[in-house]
């Protein structure tokens, strides 16, 4: 990847962030979003997050691998986030499971 491209990517992500955030604050009450659209948009973050995370946990070397260290570590992190409030714990638990399983399987 070329360095100028990387900065262009940052600017594009910056636009995709600041424009939605500023949208109605800048436009004020001149425009409003239909209720149906608002309700549908609420599902965008969950769908997008899962679309990024799931392939990372389920695919190893291009193949579906339902049993692998990353999936186990991800599930352990999710379980600790569900069970406890401590913001550090999912990272500690997830990384510990990942390294334990990798050490164990060689």
């Amino acid at each position: 990847m070329n360095d100028a491209d990387l900065w262009l990517i940052f600017i594009v992500i910056g636009l995709a962030t600041t424009l939605p955030r500023a949208s109605f604050i800048v436009l004020g009450n001149r425009v409003s979003l239909p209720g149906t659209v608002q309700r549908a948009l609420r599902y965008a973050p969950a769908a997008a997050l899962a679309a990024i995370v799931a392939p990372d946990l389920l695919v190893v070397g291009g193949q579906l691998a339902p049993l692998n260290a990353k999936l186990a570590a991800g599930l352990a992190a999710a379980a600790s986030a569900l069970r406890w409030r401590n913001p550090w714990l999912p990272f500690i638990v997830g990384m510990a499971v990942l390294h334990a399983l990798r050490a164990w399987s060689g």
Binding site: P45, L49, A54, V59, P90
Partner: peptide, 29 residues
């Protein structure tokens, strides 16, 4: 990846949100 999972967990407590995540994640895979 863990950070993204931590964001996803509280969202998935609401059932339609969980459906959105399962379909989004499954289809992406």
């Amino acid at each position: 990846t863990i950070a993204l999972i931590v964001l996803l967990v509280p969202m998935s407590r609401v059932r339609p949100m969980l459906v959105a995540a399962l379909v989004g994640g499954g289809a992406a895979t």
